[in-house]
Design a protein around this nucleic acid. Structure first.
Lengths: 163, 163
DNA sequence: GTGACTTCATTGCACACGCAATGAAGGTGC
DNA sequence: GCACCTTCATTGCGTGTGCAATGAAGTCAC
């Protein structure tokens, strides 16, 4: 008789906390710039990565390709980024921030820092440990064998299947 | 020059972790019973709360009223819950688990426990602190004054507004 | 009882999402 | 070059979602 208590269930707690936090933070930039959460993620990633493809973002930012694609389309329409075809590989679309996009990011970044600081302040001394735990949990948890140290290049291995 | 790094940004980390965790866990019951995450939440809450209204769940489980309503409709169609009009207050809809619903919950609960245990195992000694931190962060963060110690009964206080 | 207001649950609507399919482009073996 | 496979980005489609509007039911003052 397990008397299950939803409020103490971790996936539930995480979902609630994450949604609340994201929503609260997104209100800050949504008002000012009218961008959505996926759009924010794309911009934020671009600001640190320079010029990258949709594929790159999809892989690094845990968003479906279509989500990235649509976010990029909206951002381009709003003038925050440019989309150009990569001349080396014409399948790739090179995304990069416009001046307007950089200006926006320049304005949001401090808000983000402040938001996070305030968030962590609620934890007091526990903050450090919490961040550490989060980092552990975010490690790509494997069904693949041991992580094999460093030497893997970007693309994962198990590609050989065919028929 | 703030060199913002998305991967180290807390709202982002939480969102990624929460989504991954929920998705992973939901796969367990989705396959077996074909219910979605909102439906799972409703069932889980009913299993601990007995018979309750849509409103109650909406308030306690951080889901939009319409989401609860639709989840309930699907659950009823699938035979996991019943919806009846509360005779005391005919606006209220009383939700409660059917035998089939209870059986399902009886089967999922151990899976949930196991899932959570495995999840926490990854944190090792940090697990305890992590849960504590989570609890702190989940406290209804107030614009309302101080939380006022214990003595509040179930329903929150700030009801007296009117005009 | 009537009127004004509030509280519930549901539903309409516009929109975002996930997933699979599409089509363009690149790579490879011969 | 040609056939075949893979990799990208986009798009079509069915579905879920949030928000506002609706309508039923309750409450209160008078």
């Amino acid at each position: 008789m397990t008397r299950f208590v939803l409020d103490d269930f971790l996936p539930y707690q995480l979902a609630v906390l994450a949604e609340r936090t994201s929503r609260e933070f997104s209100a800050l930039y949504r008002e000012r710039f009218g961008i959505s959460i996926p759009e924010w993620r794309v911009v934020a990633h671009l600001s640190q990565a320079g010029t990258v493809s949709v594929r790159e973002i999809h892989a690094r930012v845990a968003m479906d390709k279509s989500k990235v694609s649509r976010a990029a389309a909206r951002l381009e329409a709003a003038g925050y980024i440019t989309k150009t075809v990569d001349p080396r590989d014409r399948r790739l679309v090179a995304l990069s921030l416009t001046e307007k996009g950089r200006a926006m990011m320049e304005e949001i970044a401090p808000l983000a820092e402040a938001f996070q600081a305030e968030f962590l302040a609620r934890l007091g001394a526990r903050a450090e440990d919490f961040r550490e735990a989060l980092a552990v949990l975010l490690e790509p948890q494997g069904k693949d064998e041991a992580p094999e140290e460093e030497g893997i290049q970007g693309e994962a291995g198990a590609r050989a299947r065919a028929r």
